[in-house]
Nucleic acid binder design. Structure first.
Lengths: 250, 250
DNA sequence: GCGGCCACTAATGTATACAGACTGCACTCA
DNA sequence: TGAGTGCAGTCTGTATACATTAGTGGCCGC
């Protein structure tokens, strides 16, 4: 698919949504800052109708918050909010893994997941891991989580996981890039990959409780990454999502 | 227009949303049926702009589904979808209960929950339970679950639970009324109330795992109610939410 | 000097007009 | 007779004008 085509054919609503989301995630719009429709019109150069729709969509996504008197503000998240969102995602992915295990995912449906696992193995084998490999890992990791979620074969659950993962800091790959700057990088990567291996094994053997538990624990790697990244505050630029973090001072 | 005063104060968007939701839940709009904006305008007597916003909101709620070529259709749910939504809600409420326990909900914050528990006890004590008592139970039960959710003190989690519970058949009180017609009514009520008691006790004693487990099990009462109600198909009229159920024939 | 009220401004809520895209049908040509 | 093309009707997407409300600042009265 060509970039230009999609750029041109895309609706004004989506364009506005993308533009505003970028500005929020990049920190150009600060947490707590009020954003009026007219402002959004100025920024995006589309008229109020699609802008409004875009604002509503961003509210669902969780990036904006409606102000009772009308209008929206950029949502601010505490560190606790982020950690809770990660735990929440882990819980839901745990449920997805349990469903996959209990309902007997077929050998055929497990195949793509296993291929993905093998691809990840390739990437993880390097030591030290190149930045490119990290980047590839992020993509592959996202694919692994998506496949796992699909395996639950539960549309309502898939929907919820997608909603939670829409928040960049709650997504499965949200803090992987932060690792790349850490000394513990390779070790954490290996542990994460072991979790992947275990969950596939558990699903294959119909071990629902084990599959669920390991996915919960797996998500806590993201929490660990976040804490490490916040402690050595040097590499926060790798994490644009943290623009939404309420500064502790305020 | 000179409508009633009470209806004039709320916005057209909300009015349209309520009207359309009622029609969907009451079955006047069938699952799978397409709703065009103009149709919605006809139905609600408001103009396209607020109607459109209402349709988008109902899509988020999960009652509608966007059609790729544009427009919306009423979402159809299988029995499995409904059961999964209940399990999902149970899982999230379980997480909320665990958070409440682990984070040490203060004695003060537990008080409203305990009062609610006592009120529910009063209602459950009757045998047989009057229809009015059932109705009061539904209200009180909703309050109990809302208080419990709040106790997690986790905005992201509260948000997700609210989203899931927005689907009427996934809400904590979704199938309580179905019970009232069942011979097992009183017994199920007593069991449910015992779950309530246990979760409060577990939170008080900081037993996170126990609090989580009991809330998961608690939600399965709703699943049981649903199955019973579907088996003796006599009292389905008590459950308007089931208008969204895909008929097995199709 | 302080507090309350009124008026003005600006933003949101709503309606509608216009344009582009898609669907369905009919007609024509091979 | 079948398939393709063109046209018409209708729908969604977008823009904009109008109405209404909330918020703010200044002025007047106590």
């Amino acid at each position: 698919m060509s970039e230009r085509d999609s750029e041109r054919s895309i609706s004004q609503t989506v364009r506005a949504q993308l533009a505003l989301r970028d500005m929020i995630l990049s920190g150009q719009l600060r947490p707590g800052e009020r954003i009026s429709e007219l402002q959004a019109v100025e920024i995006t150069n589309v008229s109020r109708t699609p802008v409004r729709l875009a604002l509503v969509r961003l509210e669902d996504e969780g990036l904006l918050q409606a102000i009772p008197s009308g209008g929206f503000m950029v949502k601010a998240f505490t560190e606790r909010d982020i950690l809770d969102s990660i735990e929440l995602r882990g819980t839901l992915e745990g449920l997805a893994a349990r469903f996959a295990a209990e309902r007997g995912a077929s050998a055929r449906s497990l195949e793509p997941l296993k291929e993905c696992l093998a691809d990840l193995d390739q990437l993880v084998r390097q030591d030290p891991v190149s930045v490119e490999a990290f980047s590839a890992y992020v993509t592959m990791n996202a694919r692994f989580h998506a496949l796992l979620t699909e395996l639950s074969a539960s549309p309502p659950l898939i929907r919820q996981i997608d909603r939670v993962s829409a928040l960049p800091f709650a997504s499965p790959s949200g803090f992987v890039m932060a690792q790349s700057a850490l000394p513990e990088a390779h070790q954490i990567l290996l542990i994460g990959q072991d979790h992947h291996r275990i969950v596939v094994d558990a699903i294959e053997n119909r071990e629902g409780a084990r599959a669920e538990a390991i996915m919960r624990e797996h998500s806590r790697l993201a929490a660990r990454n976040l804490r490490l990244a916040l402690r050595n505050r040097t590499h926060l630029d790798l994490l644009p999502a943290l623009a939404l973090l309420q500064s502790p001072a305020e």
